[in-house]
Design a protein around this nucleic acid. Structure first.
Lengths: 200, 200, 200, 200
DNA sequence: GATGAATGAGCATTCATTCAT
DNA sequence: CATGAATGAATGCTCATTCAT
């Protein structure tokens, strides 16, 4: 076994990179800063990652995997719990997403660059939406959806469900400062609005 | 008053900067690239703008001003037109925002950096929401809203109205590529979803 | 006019780069070293040259141009001087090449890398050989050479004329140290050998 | 004595290093690349060699040893064969040198750096030239040569014999590409030229 | 107003080398 | 012997910014 465990080092780099990317953007974060903040030598970062891009790609892969795992667990729990109240379900979702706040803002920021792909954000959304509808279909009679119907649902779920949710997560604290509102109250307002619009 | 040469130069810089910032982000765009793409000498850019930040700040100011002007005009037209159909109103709105696509993506990207302020995005949203409700109030009896009611409305309008709209504008083309959907159809789906959720 | 003259700066960079490249090879010379030795800021070097390769390419272009000019002048002088002794002609040639020692060693070193092209060396040789034979042809009856004859002459001139000459220029001083021979004597030996072999 | 694993590893490193050095030069080749191409761990390379320089020094030692062995064998064969035709002798020589192409280009490249020693190239040449003249002397009456005569012969043999030969070996294929000549024909041309000049 | 040139700090990346296991 | 990990200096290059003309 080497002096230190490489896997741990790699994880530390990812942790710190996630934090810094979400704070200042990918382009606004230098590998030097990551090195300084992790206390890990810059050369070591390049031992573990091919280049700076490899770091953010790793983060993207991790978040997608993480979301998938979360959904699996959530599905199982839902079955066990029987009828969870809608309110609680959303709150749980918000709580989970809150933990992933940094990654979500990175995902959004990078997706917004018109000169880059939004694939990672879309892929992530796909996983979530697909899951939701797989669940529902189990309980309903199995009518196959046309491609058009499915597209329509995706658009609906993404732009009026996922996007508001993610935006809220990433902007909540700055909103509460700017408009001088207590964060809990803000969450209440948002949930109210979200229920009114997205879930009928 | 005719535009002086200087004013034209300044405008060209802003135009190109807007395009590049929206393509690659503020941090992903160097002043060199702006100089090269405008064909304007780098020194000249620093004659017209104090520093790189001054460029984006100018853009932010312009977009807010532009939105305000747009709303004024829209208000006047609405009065003239009498009862414009809701559908057409949204479509007009989407068309207008579409022209401002670049600025909107810049606004969103910069707002997502957790280490920076989202003030410009919020300010912009404030203008739009305030306008909407000023209009409504004119036709209703003037019941003053409590701060809490107003906060709640703001949250509602922003996260379930403005954010979906802006996200749609900025992600539309990449969505249509990723999911292989015709852009017009996509717009239809979105409008359907938007009407279903945001406007009852 | 700017603070300093850009053309002069560019020339200084080329001068120092030539010296350092010939001392330590292209890959053995860092742009930092060039900057330090010229006293010119590294950023400025990249203002004048696109990249490190652009520096060596400039040097290659210059040497070819320089050789062409030298040949033109030499041709004119030869005509004026009538029958110059062979010995003096070679000596003059060696003297000229000696001034270009640095560039010649760069040319040779880079040509020897089996993974890179030798085009610059070949191009340079082409110019010299072509010149020599153009001269001769003027005085002889104009019999056109076949491609094969020309190829054969080129090979002959290059490998038994130019290459020994260039090698001698670039290795002379180190030879004189290693074998402990006076440089002038060494030159005599070489000229003897060269006359014996290359010029009948 | 069978080669130990370690000795095999060392040999593989040398093989690959030779190839890479000849392709991109010593300074253009990193230890990382050698490690990657051999598949041998970088740490292991430093177990077998004190530093990067030790690798090239080993190569230099090996080539000199190899040349010495080759000459010994060649000498013995010559005696056995009686009067081998000159043509065949040169061809055999070219064939042998061709196998050593990589090392020869390394030898030449490093010797051309004016800031480094050419000792290895000179040493190598010394071995070859000394051999040639030892042979001759055996058949002639043993008149001792003065230092001056010997120097002169060395210069002659090196610059008009060895150098053209080595240059031809290292530049042949690139010459044939640049001037679009068949390699065999090229070799014929060269041999013609070489016989005409170096061997009377 | 505009331009060419300069500057120093910073950037992503690679380097030769070391060392505990 | 071999390996994975680490390190700090260096490398090629870009950055935002300045300034004399």
């Amino acid at each position: 076994m080497p002096k230190t465990d490489g896997a741990l080092t790699k994880e530390r780099i990812l942790q710190v990179a996630e934090k810094l990317f979400s704070q200042n953007g990918f382009d606004g974060t230098s590998v030097d800063k990551i090195a300084k903040e992790t206390g890990i030598n810059k050369g070591s970062i390049y031992y573990h990652f091919k280049d700076k891009n490899d770091i953010i790609e790793s983060l993207f892969q991790n978040i997608i995997q993480d979301v998938e795992e979360h959904l699996n667990i959530a599905n199982r729990e839902k079955m066990a719990d029987g009828q969870l109240k809608l309110e609680d379900k959303i709150k749980a979702e918000i709580d989970y997403l809150h933990c992933k706040k940094s990654m979500l803002s990175i995902l959004l920021m990078e997706a917004m660059k018109s000169g880059a792909s939004s694939d990672h954000l879309f892929k992530c959304a796909e996983v979530i939406i697909a899951n939701e509808h797989t669940n529902r279909d189990n309980h309903q009679d199995e009518k196959k959806l046309t491609k058009e119907e499915q597209d329509s649902i995706f658009v609906y779920e993404f732009f009026t469900g996922i996007i508001p949710l993610l935006s809220f997560i990433t902007l909540k604290d700055k909103w509460s400062t700017y408009f001088n509102i207590d964060e809990d109250k803000l969450t209440d307002y948002f949930m109210e609005a979200f229920k009114k619009t997205h879930l009928k």
